[in-house]
């Protein structure tokens, strides 16, 4: 690998105040400042955002799809975490 290849940054944009930053994509840049400038140019040319976060991709630890089972299956049979598990008469209001 070329040692001088620019690192990847993940870009998060807040489309308007009140909403969370959402992942929109990634880009290469020499550092975070450049990543910010490039993200502005790439992802907010049509006023898509009011705030940008750039995060070096190497700093993100992602779950491995192969581990999906052990991570997510345990929630499948925990139906008692949902409101519908509890049997209340339908005539009851506001609950």
């Amino acid at each position: 690998m070329n040692k001088n290849e620019w690192p990847i940054f993940e870009i998060f944009i807040r489309s308007k105040n009140g909403l969370e930053h959402r992942h929109v994509g990634s880009l290469h840049a020499a550092d975070a400042v450049m990543a910010m400038e490039n993200a502005r140019d790439v992802y907010t040319r049509r006023q898509e955002g009011v705030s940008i976060w750039v995060v070096a991709s190497k700093d993100i630890t992602a779950s491995n799809p192969e581990n999906g089972g052990e991570l997510f299956e345990p929630a499948e049979d925990k139906i008692y975490r949902h409101p519908t598990f509890y049997e209340l008469p339908i005539e009851l209001k506001h609950i």
Partner: peptide, 27 residues
């Protein structure tokens, strides 16, 4: 305040079951 409001949205989604399990016990 955005972060507070967003935390509340998450929390409210979860609260409904809390109250229903309580009422089911009372019932």
């Amino acid at each position: 305040f955005g972060p507070y409001a967003r935390a509340m949205v998450r929390i409210c989604k979860e609260e409904s079951f809390h109250q229903r399990q309580g009422y089911e016990i009372m019932l």
